[in-house]
């Protein structure tokens, strides 16, 4: 790699997974990713349990936040996935809170973002894909396949469209996972690249530092928007499985 120059930037090193207590990484070894997964879980649990512990008629600050999350995702599921999708609400809520908290906690300096790893996002996306496929087949049987047969198109075009629809259906988990992982990874790597510039530019390093501040703001936005997009796409896919008609 490009290690001979004076400029040594390793934007990908921050994503390195290493064992917490040394040794090789096996299936169950606690790693730095495990640590941050745990922190994410704890943060979500703390917020949502604190928000729901009071159960007061007039909500306090924390309870308001919890109810905001609840209302936001509940409305989204009802609106996008339809009324039948409401039983997937806890699942969608778990996805949203996990991605949001993981993205935001990953923006803390020295932290690690599990959602920057394709393995994690692919697992999430495949979970959604399997849920949608299995629920669709279970609820609609072979009728689920009618989704690929665009009956509003001319008969000649239908096989072509069906092929495209099938391909796009199976590409879904790929785009679903890479969108999230790629966005988070690209943001972190970009910050790291600018940080590398800042290290060698002397007084002029105020420029890359200002750029880091700006990118950091953008990344905060991206963290929230990507969590939202992942969640709303999950709802859109769920509509295919439980809704009445293909949009």
């Amino acid at each position: 790699m490009a290690e001979e120059g004076g400029l040594q930037i390793h934007p990908m090193d921050q994503f390195q997974i290493h064992s917490l207590f040394g040794g090789d990484i096996g299936m169950f070894t606690p790693t730095n990713q495990t640590l941050w997964l745990g922190i994410t879980v704890l943060a979500i649990s703390a917020l949502m349990l604190a928000a729901s512990a009071g159960r007061s008629m007039i909500p306090g600050r924390v309870q308001s936040i919890g109810e905001l999350f609840y209302g936001f995702i509940h409305d989204m599921v009802e609106e996008v996935a339809g009324h039948d999708g409401a039983k997937f609400f806890p699942y969608v809520m778990a996805l949203f809170t996990f991605i949001l908290f993981s993205n935001l906690l990953g923006l803390l300096p020295m932290s690690f973002s599990p959602t920057s790893h394709i393995a994690a996002t692919a697992t999430l996306a495949i979970m959604v894909f399997l849920t949608v496929t299995l629920v669709g087949i279970w609820r609609k049987g072979l009728g689920f396949l009618a989704m690929f047969w665009v009956s509003s198109a001319p008969l000649v075009l239908r096989p072509v469209l069906a092929a495209i629809e099938v391909i796009s259906y199976f590409v879904r988990p790929l785009s679903h996972s890479i969108r999230l992982g790629g966005n988070i990874m690209a943001g972190h790597a970009m910050i790291k690249v600018f940080a590398g510039f800042a290290g060698v530019m002397g007084v002029a390093s105020v420029l890359p530092i200002a750029a880091i501040a700006a990118i950091y703001g953008l990344e905060l936005l991206v963290a929230v928007v990507q969590a939202y997009v992942f969640t709303i796409l999950t709802c859109v896919y769920l509509r295919d499985a439980v809704g009445e008609a293909h949009h």
Partner: peptide, 29 residues
């Protein structure tokens, strides 16, 4: 390793949300 721990985390979050937090908040609402 990543997939294993992610699934564990998701199950824990789902359990906390679906079994404890969300019914409570829904009840309050």
């Amino acid at each position: 390793n990543q997939i294993f721990w992610l699934v564990v985390a998701m199950v824990v979050i789902w359990f906390v949300l679906a079994k404890i937090a969300l019914p409570r908040i829904g009840g309050v609402l």
